[in-house]
Nucleic acid binder design. Structure first.
Ligand code: MN
Ligand code: MN
Ligand code: ZN
Ligand code: ZN
Lengths: 132, 132
DNA sequence: ACACCTTTTTAGAATCATTATAAAGTAAAT
DNA sequence: ATTTACTTTATAATGATTCTAAAAAGGTGT
């Protein structure tokens, strides 16, 4: 019930599937990073009914477009998403292939001195790769 | 002839294909960004003989492993590589889907204050997304 | 409730970048 | 020259993602 308004306000119909995906994604103490496959597993575990993979893809992309999820730029065969939509950065542990949040406050202010004509900055993201 | 030593020193046999790919990649005034497909096109245009796609993949990965190429972390269905292996950053023009180098000197020094136990920092990369 | 229209879900097929396979070719070592 | 290890290649396989089109569900007005 708590996500019905959120979806309506975004012009998305609050379907049973979308509401359930909202619960899996946003009813958590901690934000988290996931691939579509991670999410599909989580949904299968946490819910009694199944949701088709196509719907999971559709929903994740819809939520991303609306700004409820962010994509994390990283080199992987799978796309990583983040339920933490605040401005922040990431560690990427190359050995464990795991993402770790790096808060804005843990990185000095980033000053982009160069401008590109006619373009404005949409985001500034730092990726710190870690190894043992 | 100029890449034979480079390859030998890396433990890579200087085959005809690898030497030709070296020429396409490194015999340029400017460094550049590319996908495997870009590179395959370039090879077809610049060379008289053809090189199989499998070899292009193999070679690019071998060169990356040896540090002659870098992968650029970005969300795309294709993997982007960079012949500029210096420490540097990138603009990504979302509208034109184009990468632009952003020199280290164009970004203030980045100070990662948080440490992860037992891990050391391998790289720090900034991605600045641009829109119109 | 019902009719009507739009959006959404779904199974399954298609796409396409990338990786795997295994046989033939080449470079290096003995 | 023979042997050995590495490399190239055509081709198949893989797997994440997107597409398709038909069925289901939501929303609106009556
Ligand atoms: Mn991707
Ligand atoms: Mn990729
Ligand atoms: Zn995050
Ligand atoms: Zn670059």
């Amino acid at each position: 019930m708590k996500y019905i308004e959120k979806l309506r306000n975004s012009g998305l119909r609050p379907t049973k599937q979308r509401l359930q995906i909202c619960e899996v994604l946003f009813d958590t103490k901690q934000t988290f990073h996931f691939t579509i496959n991670d999410l599909a597993k989580k949904i299968k575990d946490q819910l009694d009914n199944r949701i088709s993979l196509a719907t999971i893809y559709n929903t994740v992309h819809a939520f991303e477009k609306k700004g409820y999820l962010k994509q994390i730029p990283i080199n992987s065969n799978q796309t990583y998403f983040d339920t933490n939509i605040s401005d922040h950065h990431h560690f990427y542990d190359l050995n464990e292939e795991k993402l770790i949040d790096l808060e804005n406050s843990d990185v000095g202010p980033i000053n982009i001195k160069r401008k590109i004509n006619g373009k404005k900055i949409k985001s500034v993201e730092v990726l710190v790769k870690l190894e043992d």
